[in-house]
Design a protein around this nucleic acid. Structure first.
Ligand code: FES
Ligand code: FES
Lengths: 135, 135
DNA sequence: CAAAATGATATAAATATAGTATCATTTAAC
DNA sequence: GTTAAATGATACTATATTTATATCATTTTG
């Protein structure tokens, strides 16, 4: 049971690293070396973060990435949503099909209320808050 | 992000159904018909519940299953553990490998504390408590 | 002994996660 | 203006997990 997948985790590591650089331009190559994340995988992750405007890509030679928001404003939930889709922990067990079980679905209601708490807690985690921990 | 997998869900439905029968012997065939769960799948699920002593199998013609515990004592977490293994929501992103990232793992600590709450909430859900909802 | 149940277990299919690879485009420096 | 070093887009592969299915053995009642 994994709340956070590997790409979210890698993305967070990269974002924390970038935040530590205080606005310095950082290349994917540098982060691959520093963070020991598979190259092609990290590249794709950074591209996705770029598309969602979490970081600002700078193209061409001497290019790289910078955060496009202050680290306080990047929340774990934002990152999770990019890589893991909806945060519904209470996702219907028969996703995508017409659920044949609504009537007998005793569990969902219970889980929905737990979910609210979890999402709130996750939302409270920002890159900045992880940063203070990192030093 | 699914907190509960399909087999756990099926198991819970079956257990709730059995609880409703107040000790009457129930066959897998009957539950397949009532609950619309794929036959072979439900059979295997019941076997697993039997192995873990959640229900008592009665072999031979006229056989079937009965709960081996009062419905109040069967907790969702028990069922989840059978079908989903550990309840660690904070499972290391690099499970099974020697984690190459402990030093940079900022997230795990945070998630561990969320996990404690979630597991407590789930533990409070018993088959009996779902039963009252079911009517 | 036959029928109706469960036990054990192997296998397959579908989906999700994790990772790779390739080629195109942009930009700076020479 | 060519080359090198960066990102963009996107297709592909591999692995693991989830969701089943299928088969044969064993037990028990009538
Ligand atoms: S299984 Fe569909 S709503 Fe619960
Ligand atoms: S990634 Fe291994 S402990 Fe966090």
């Amino acid at each position: 049971m994994k709340l956070v997948t590997r790409d979210t985790d890698y993305a967070v590591r990269a974002l924390v690293y970038m935040a530590q650089q205080r606005g310095r331009l950082v290349t994917s190559r540098e982060m691959v070396d520093e963070l020991r994340i598979p190259r092609a995988f990290l590249r794709r992750i950074l591209q996705q973060l770029g598309r969602h405007a979490v970081l600002k890509p700078i193209k061409g030679k001497m290019g790289g990435f910078v955060l496009s928001l202050p680290a306080e404003k990047i929340r774990l939930t934002d990152v999770m949503r990019i890589f893991q889709g909806s945060l519904e922990i209470s996702e219907c067990m028969f996703k995508k099909q017409v659920c044949p079980n609504r009537a007998r679905c005793f569990l969902r209601k219970r889980i929905v209320s737990i979910e609210a708490y979890v999402v709130n807690q996750l939302r409270a985690i920002s890159i900045a808050s992880l940063l203070t921990e990192a030093r």
